[in-house]
Design a protein around this nucleic acid. Sequence first.
DNA 1: CCCGGTATTAAAGTTAGGTTTAATGCTGAC
DNA 2: GTCAGCATTAAACCTAACTTTAATACCGGG
Lengths: 155, 155
Amino acid sequence: MRIGELAKRSGLAPSRIRFYEKIGLLKTVKRTPNGYRSYPPEALVVLDLITTAQGAGFSLDELRTLLPSDLNQWEHTSLVETLQRKVQDIEALQEQLADSKTKLLELLTEIESKPDDMDCATNAKRVLSQFGLGEPDSSGPDDQSNEGTAKGSLA
Amino acid sequence: MRIGELAKRSGLAPSRIRFYEKIGLLKTVKRTPNGYRSYPPEALVVLDLITTAQGAGFSLDELRTLLPSDLNQWEHTSLVETLQRKVQDIEALQEQLADSKTKLLELLTEIESKPDDMDCATNAKRVLSQFGLGEPDSSGPDDQSNEGTAKGSLA
DNA sequence: CCCGGTATTAAAGTTAGGTTTAATGCTGAC
DNA sequence: GTCAGCATTAAACCTAACTTTAATACCGGG
């Protein structure tokens, strides 16, 4: 199968398939005498696997170290460990999302419960004073650069 | 307050604070005669608000259109609408995360239930055939480039 | 007067995950 | 033999959210 067909069948752009090959994620690529890429039908499964796993939160980097390039060569234990770690990651994100949601909902009720006779400015102060302050946290040692980096980007 | 102190008190790097100003997110900045930035104590609240909101899934772009630069000038209705939309976004992500987690857990039990007398290759095939295939989906019209773009990056 | 610490700026670099472009080549149908 | 359509490559570009770098300025103490 050439790249055009693989692209159509997998739903991915050819550029994306070439890109995956370039970063070492696809190693099952042969060449025809004229230089065209030639894929076995397996490639379709691999691409599906990649996009599905990506949707489940795996980075391409993780996938590269995870996929043994021969689908029949998985290493049982490390694979299982990785999957379990990923489940834990997901659980952490679920907690974080739940927290965010709670905060937003609190904020909403707080805003909407504004007495009709209160002006916006005062209400704003009331709402803000309830919002921003969780843990004071700022009296610890001074690591100001490397603190908030491991965020899940939710937008 | 100068930028160094604001940085220490907010826990953000000075470069980040300058960056926020550059992209129009911080407008409450005056200058001392020598050119140094000078912040009112309010700035601390704004920065806390920004990082918290960011953690809740707001992009800086959204925040820029949301923050009226004078904290006492919020527009009630549009603010409430935005917050509600964001709650919906979070709920969608929660669903997606739950799905991913279910899939991973299914995959794990599937892998671990491998009969001890089955070789890895066969097991791999058994597992894969259960995994990758959800909806066939590929027979529709040909929009192969712009389909899967609205992902929450969970890694 | 000089030094260390803090400040300023513009511009370039970073990471992830690709897409776009430009120049070029092969292939099959007419 | 020529033209459309699919293929190739390297390199440049893209977004988000910052950081790093380089060159320069100011400020207080000894």
